[in-house]
Design a protein around this nucleic acid. Structure first.
Length: 229
DNA sequence: GGCCAGGACACCA
DNA sequence: TGGTGTCATGGC
């Protein structure tokens, strides 16, 4: 399996090249972006991040001292702005209570323990948690998302209804704990997924073998990069 | 005008 | 434990 995973990585890398993720200027911006991008296109998140910068709110202290109502207005373009404002504030409050608002302290200890702590913070689910660990902290925690599930189910390597932790374990147990590799791999999977969806707008995500919203069963369309195994 | 995006959580049976 | 509803903007 390790050889297969690395082969898939190589094909994606040859097709798309280095993605240079995460698209953020600082680790803290990664944390904020990871929450803002929950079920949201990155373009909308960029608008919200720009608003935060313009309002000089993109720092732990500034977010801590901002009312949730004001924060919600600033991040409005990201969608779900009320819940996300609440989640951001909740994360920040925890960040100060537990780590004194210091990223250095946050990432200083054992990351598997930090992972459990983060997962216990309301609004921080597994994907957001792993994105923070990998892209803000440089920890070897693989990030899995909807694109990953579609791609690997389409390749016939996992079930379509595989859970987050089980899918993540496939990578954690079959790849070396290499943060740069994990970084690039997830970014490449997203790039591959985005390109794919754009090509079949009438049935998003269906380049591979899944049911679309209309309930139609579509024939698998070969990925331009990968073939089902 | 419909569909969905780099999820997470509450609620219900 | 699994299925469904909710949250919401903006691009295509």
């Amino acid at each position: 399996m390790e050889k297969l995973l690395l082969e898939i990585f190589d094909r994606l890398f040859r097709r798309y090249g280095p993605r240079r993720w995460w698209p953020a200027e600082t680790p803290f911006e990664v944390c904020v972006g990871a929450i803002l991008t929950q079920n949201t296109s990155w373009g909308n998140v960029e608008k919200a991040i720009a608003n935060l910068k313009r309002a000089k709110l993109l720092s732990p202290e500034a977010l801590r001292d901002t009312r949730v109502e004001q924060l919600a207005e600033v991040i409005r373009p990201a969608g779900f702005f009320n819940v996300k404002a609440k989640r951001l504030k909740g994360f920040i409050d925890w960040f100060f209570a537990r780590y004194d608002g210091s990223l250095e302290r946050l990432f200083a200890g054992e990351w598997p323990i930090l992972r459990e702590e983060l997962l216990a913070v309301p609004g921080i689910g597994p994907e957001t948690c792993d994105a923070i660990l990998l892209y803000a902290g440089g920890k070897p925690s693989f990030v899995v998302d909807a694109y990953t599930r579609r791609l690997f189910a389409g390749l016939g390597l996992v079930r379509e209804d595989i859970g987050y932790e089980e899918l993540r374990a496939l990578f954690m147990e079959n790849l070396p704990p290499d943060p740069p590799l994990f970084n690039e791999y997830h970014a490449l999977i997203v790039e591959h997924g985005k390109e794919h969806c754009r090509k079949r707008p009438r049935c998003p995500g269906c380049s591979l073998h899944v049911l679309c919203r209309a309930g139609h069963r579509h024939d698998p369309v070969p990925s331009p990069v990968l073939r089902p195994v």
